[in-house]
Computed example of a mutant assay.
Amino acid sequence: MKIGIDILGVDEPGRIINFVNSYDDNEVEFYVYGLEENLDKITKTKNIVKNVCTEEVLMSDDAARVHRKKKDASMIRMLSDLNNDIIDVAISGGSTGAFMASSLFMLGRIEGISKPGLASLLPTSSEHKFLLTDLGANVEAKSDDLVNYAKLGQLYMKYIYKIDEPSVALLNVGVEETKGNKVYKEAHKMIKEEVANFKGNIEARNILEHRFDVVIADGFAGNILLKSIEGVASSLGAMIKGIFLKNFRTKISALLVRKGIKAFKKKFDYSEYGGAFLLGIKKPSIKVHGSADENALYYAVQQAKQIHKTKLYDIMIETMEKGEQK
């Protein structure tokens, strides 16, 4: 398969270059997009196609118009190749707004989808993961959008993680059907009617207990939840480290529980959960953190391989356009 990787717009392009140079998989051919000075640092020649670009998408660029104003930017060239079937999946760590808007405009929406959602896997207290969407693509979603997120999220968990009938919950301020604003109350009723194995509302405090496989929210609530989880995990990690480094005795204690601390840190390491991806567009584009390291890129590529091998986006298009669910 052919995977596009955008070198530009990230904190450290050298990490992507190191990853590309060291990655060894005969199943994957990388199409790498960047400035000539970046591409010259890629010494690997097997399964590599270099695409020299003259522009870069900046954080200050108008996200909604960058695909028209910077047609030779690495991100835009990569998405154009994805749209023209030159590559199978696109990966970028550049501007999230520009990547989402350009993916939407250049790749097109699945019929019946008005607002694609941004989705990502998150850890739980068990060994299982759950899918959360929307993470911030649409801060003012309608009830129809939440229903579509539920359907698309189920398809992802079914075909990528082989869960026959993924459970779905709606993030809300209470578990009762009557809780929430007008959009959420209406969405609850619609999801209950249209989506199999809908379990009702879930409160944020229970989100990491792996009660459900897919959790749905509008982009405002979903983004706040995501950043809260990341912030709490980071703060807890720092607090635990501070406790065990307090004095000689605590340092000795740290040696005894070192494996447990490493396991905790690993569970909440975002780099091992792949990237965020847009649900509702016709072709797969994956967004990784701008600070993504080689480990994060590795898992994003594994995610891209799974999506391609399962023909997930073809399934999504067929299912949503034919209305074949529940």
Rank of each mutant, 00 (worst) to 15 (best):
T54F: 07
M78C: 12
N84H: 14
D81W: 07
G219S: 08
M1L: 06
F19M: 00
I207R: 06
A137F: 11
F268P: 04
K283T: 05
T43L: 11
F212S: 05
K189A: 13
V168I: 08
A204G: 15
G200H: 06
S126M: 03
F99T: 13
T310V: 13
Y313E: 10
K305F: 05
I163E: 04
M106E: 12
M239Y: 07
M75V: 10
A217Q: 04
K185G: 13
L225K: 10
K44F: 02
I229V: 12
L279A: 15
A292K: 11
F264C: 08
M157I: 01
Q306T: 08
G323C: 00
A90Y: 06
K322V: 07
K189R: 10
N172Q: 02
A137K: 07
M100F: 13
K259M: 12
M1S: 05
Y33C: 02
E321A: 08
I317E: 14
R77K: 14
K283V: 12
S235C: 11
L152K: 01
A254L: 04
K185T: 14
V195T: 01
E165L: 09
L226F: 11
S102M: 02
T319Y: 03
L146C: 10
K227C: 09
E272K: 02
T310F: 06
N84S: 12
N51R: 15
E55D: 12
G231W: 15
V195G: 06
D293I: 01
V288D: 03
A63P: 15
I202G: 11
A63F: 04
D218L: 15
S114A: 10
Y149D: 09
S120H: 05
A119K: 03
I48F: 03
R68T: 15
H210V: 04
T319I: 10
I48C: 04
Y313N: 13
R211A: 02
I163D: 01
I87F: 03
L255C: 14
S95V: 10
Y23E: 11
I5T: 12
I5P: 05
K283P: 03
H289Q: 09
D6Y: 05
